[in-house]
Amino acid sequence: MRCAVCSRQARGFGYFNPALHRTDPRRYSHRWVFCSMRCMDAFSRVMARLTGLREGAVLDATDLEIAAMRAALAPLGDYVASIGMERPLADYRKEEVLQLVEVVVDAYQAHMLLEHERLAEKERAILEQRLDAPPLPASGAHTRIPF
């Protein structure tokens, strides 16, 4: 196969279109292979410009991530109120902007951590319940695993 940018021999670098759904056959193409990271990056920049994707943009945040973003709003509001709601962001000092970022990231991470711990505890309880259940009587050669 040939590099989609420079036509040299492709060496295992590939691209898929993140704007298309996983099951869309146009998402992956054997024509989108490259000889180097340099060619792949050049192609990726062109595709991002054509598809309207911004570099670093989050595609489809999960429900858990959206909830964490919402959980960060209250601490963000409290911080902004403490330094003055009437001030535009452009007037913040560097230390204030860094503190603002820290407040948002800490609140986001704290929510994600608590939610993951809650989900892990829920799964652990279900597993323990299944393991503590009395075994089903074996019928012939077939035995059933309790999960």
Score class of each variant (00 low, 15 high):
M1T: 15
M1K: 07
R2H: 14
C3P: 02
A4E: 01
V5P: 00
V5K: 08
C6I: 07
S7C: 12
Q9E: 09
A10S: 13
G12S: 04
G12D: 06
G12K: 11
F13V: 02
P18H: 03
P18V: 04
A19Q: 11
A19E: 06
L20Y: 05
R22F: 07
T23C: 06
D24S: 09
D24Y: 01
D24V: 06
R26G: 00
R26M: 05
R27Y: 05
R27Q: 08
S29N: 15
R31F: 10
R31H: 12
F34Y: 01
C35T: 00
S36L: 06
M37E: 14
R38K: 15
C39N: 01
M40T: 07
F43I: 11
F43C: 04
F43R: 05
F43N: 03
S44T: 01
S44V: 03
S44L: 03
V46H: 05
M47S: 08
R49E: 04
R49Q: 12
T51G: 12
G52Y: 01
L53T: 02
R54A: 08
R54V: 13
A57P: 03
V58G: 07
L59K: 09
D60I: 03
D60Q: 04
A61S: 14
T62L: 00
L64H: 07
L64A: 09
E65F: 03
I66D: 10
I66W: 08
I66M: 14
I66K: 15
A67D: 03
M69H: 05
M69P: 00
M69Q: 01
A71P: 02
L73T: 14
L73S: 12
A74W: 05
P75V: 03
L76F: 09
G77W: 05
V80M: 07
S82A: 12
I83W: 00
G84F: 06
G84V: 06
M85E: 10
E86F: 10
P88D: 08
L89A: 14
L89F: 14
D91V: 01
D91A: 14
D91M: 11
D91C: 11
R93D: 10
K94Q: 14
K94E: 14
E95K: 15
E96R: 10
E96Y: 12
L98Y: 11
Q99G: 12
Q99Y: 08
L100V: 03
L100A: 13
L100K: 08
L100E: 06
V101I: 11
V104F: 10
V105A: 08
Y108T: 04
Y108S: 07
Q109W: 04
A110M: 09
A110S: 13
H111G: 04
H111L: 02
H111P: 11
H111S: 06
M112I: 00
H116E: 11
H116S: 10
R118F: 05
A120T: 12
A120L: 13
K122M: 10
R124K: 15
E128G: 07
E128C: 12
R130C: 11
L131P: 02
D132M: 12
D132N: 15
D132Q: 14
A133S: 10
P135V: 08
L136R: 12
P137N: 04
A138P: 09
A138F: 08
S139P: 04
S139I: 08
H142V: 13
H142N: 07
H142I: 14
R144N: 14
I145V: 15
P146L: 04
